[in-house]
Structure formats: C-alpha cells, structure tokens
Amino acid sequence: MHPKRKQRLIVILFIVVVSSAGVGLTLYSLGNNLNLFYPPSSIVDGTAPVNTSIRAGGCVVPGSVERSTDGIDVSFKVTDGAVQLPVTYNKILPDLFSEGEAVVLTGKLNESGIFVATKVLAKHDENYTPPEVSDSLQGSGEHQAVCEELSYDS
C-alpha cells in the first residue's frame, strides 16, 4: 500500500475507534437509564420512584388475573421470578395479553404498594410456531420462553 494511503487508513481507523469508544462509554455510563421498564423486584424494593409515572415489565402470574363483575377493572400480578407486583388497570387490555405472557405497564406505584397502570402493552417473544405445532407441544411453548423459566411460587 502506498504510504500516503496507509496514513489515511490509519486516520480513518482512528476516527472510527475514537468516536465508537466515545459513544460506547456514554451508553455505558447511562446504563440502567436506557431500560424501558423496571423489573418488579426493583419496584418492590424501592429502587423505582413512588408516585411518579414509571414503566414496569414482567410476566403475568398464571391464575392471578381477576376481572371485576361490573366493569372492565382488572387486577393481576406481574413477576420477574423474584417478587410479585400487584397491578390494577381499568382500560381495555391488548389482544395478546394473557396469563404467562410478558407485559410492559405504564403507571404509578401507590402507597399501599399497588401498581396503578394507565397503559398495558403486550410484549410478544421471538418464537413463531404454527397453531398445530403449538397444540401438540402441550405446556411447553404455551407460554413465552422467558416467562416459562420463572418460578411462580414466591
């Protein structure tokens, strides 16, 4: 390679490496602030702020969904495997919302430790299966893989 071209190559590599390192360090220092939501355990242990609007994410505990008889109020628990966070919500749930599936909630934690959600988003996973295959699997594959691994007994 011509020495002049070599020099230009080194300058370009330098620019790319330095700018990438700059962006990388910025992202690293931002750290947890870039997360879209708090897991239930950091809401229960007080890491997440109380009475301000935050997002929570986790899996809906199977059997915890209770719908009120005279309205669309619904309450359920979300978990990250460590703790369970009680949630109330009074709007229409997305179609993909179901027990054993992941959700992302927007809302506030009140003084009694209940998360009052103003928005519920269903988080779908990266698995795609035809209905017949899903039926024959029975149990495994019925819920999201990330929720499947959790223990719900806590």
């Binding site: 870039l34 879209l36 698995n127």
Partner: peptide, 26 residues
C-alpha cells in the same frame, strides 16, 4: 457515515443489553 457505524452494533444488541418492548432476534 464512518462515525455512524457505531450505531449498527447498538441496534443489533439493544434488545439484549437493555429491557425493551421489542423482542430479541429470531
């Protein structure tokens, strides 16, 4: 264009590095 290349691995790994609504890669 060269400075912006740093964004490509960030897009690719964003779903693994942070909690996101978007699902991880299939």
């Amino acid at each position: 264009a060269l400075v912006g290349t740093v964004n490509i691995p960030i897009i690719y790994k964003s779903v693994d590095w942070w909690y996101t609504l978007h699902q991880p890669a299939t």
